[in-house]
Design a protein around this nucleic acid. Structure first.
Lengths: 236, 236
DNA sequence: GAGTGGTCTAGACCACTTC
DNA sequence: AAGTGGTCTAGACCACTCT
């Protein structure tokens, strides 16, 4: 099977154009109908090719807006550098955080177990969007123990939570447990990220403890998979 | 936009069947034509629905063989437990490793930089397949410094490399640096994993150093994304 | 309002797996 | 040999974005 299909041909050609710099980060690709015609394929086949490029993280799709060239991935070291703004700035990008929602909610069984509190204990819930260069790349849901950082909801949460914890409550992260799942976006998250339901994503679950070993918060981060490279170390 | 499309309807229904246990891990789904007819949709739409389920990691596609129910993910802690056989056994699965290729090759610029040797230095190259319960879930390419473990290629590499290092060469891993990319499979790897070019995958790059800080090997692991949950810790 | 992307149909042909 | 998945076509209609 060394025959190259049409979808693969388009993938190879676009990949080449992207690597050679003919297309630059942030550029919008021509319309699907135009591209399909230039490759002499049907729109379905063209979209297959585009999807392959997107799976590699070289382009991404903005819902109903078209296909765009993805910027280089940002190095994300969740175990040692949980500060989004510092991370993006260091990589030469413009970070932004927008709080979509902050409420007090009763802990579900799952959340209660993670936070090490009783079910239905009231906890803070935050939903925030992370931007790099005006593109929403991450939607983060945080469940925070109210007893650890009372009054959190009165703070401006459009910056770094670690800074708030430290400056307002004198709390610093100790151990951080991280789980990582390649998965797909549900409708709500997809909408927030201006992309489509089912778009492939990286789900990072973080359980953050204080220096005293007590759980501070539990976070679900839904990342556009093309935006980051996750890095960490182990061993001695 | 609260209208649920056909693809999504199929996704929801199959997800429900999988969670309820009507379909069990390893089961083959009915043929696409049969499913399309039962949902009263075209094959293209049916495949869209199947793809969404696969993106969640609940089913997977075996090239030309059909769609199968995926077993639960195995916890993979690359930073502290690099032993595949132990990991899978602990999770109740049957692990297997098959060496596809072992050769001596000159280091390319990239590989030389990672291994901290001169370009074109001769290094060991291994390509191995990892199985869980007879399903190939990972294709691993290793570049090993010959000066660290001379004679490695004469060993049976169908087991754990860390054990060989330790028992034959008295070498133990010290620091491990890990990078993680959600990406898509190329043709060669896809073929080895009995899946299709472009299937979404998790690429894990590991740089393994000895206790003396010298690089021992550099490994590229291509994982079927549904097979594992990556876990690690950080902080104090 | 024009153009575009999102979704879907109803076929087709081939190569491969399975029986 | 039959059935299946892999790939592709040539349309269609709608809802949304863009200008």
């Amino acid at each position: 099977m060394s025959v190259v299909g049409q979808g693969q041909r388009i993938f190879l050609d676009l990949t080449q154009q992207l690597r050679s710099g003919e297309l630059k980060p942030g550029d919008k690709l021509p319309s699907e109908r135009f591209l399909a015609e230039s490759y002499h394929v049907s729109r379905a086949t063209l979209r297959d090719g585009l999807q392959r490029v997107a799976d590699q993280g070289l382009i991404y799709r903005a819902n109903r807006r078209g296909w765009f060239v993805a910027p280089p991935r940002v190095r994300y070291q969740p175990a040692i550098e949980p500060n989004f703004h510092q991370m993006v700035s260091a990589a030469g990008g413009r970070p932004k955080t927008q709080t979509l929602e902050k409420r007090i909610v009763p802990a579900t069984a799952t959340i209660a177990a993670m936070l090490d509190v009783d079910e239905n204990t009231l906890v803070f819930y935050l939903r925030r969007l992370r931007y790099i260069d005006d593109r929403a790349v991450c939607c983060a849901e945080s469940y925070v123990r109210a007893d650890q950082v009372p009054g959190l909801l009165d703070c401006n949460t459009d910056g770094s939570m670690t800074e708030i914890y430290q400056q307002q409550f004198n709390k610093t992260y100790g151990k951080i447990d991280i789980q990582l799942y390649p998965t797909a976006l549900n409708q709500q998250i997809a909408e927030a990220l201006l992309t489509v339901e089912g778009a492939s994503a990286l789900l990072i679950k973080r359980l953050n403890k204080g220096l005293d070993g007590q759980v501070i918060d539990y976070e679900l981060e839904w990342w556009c998979h093309d935006a980051i490279t996750v890095c960490f170390s182990g061993g001695v």
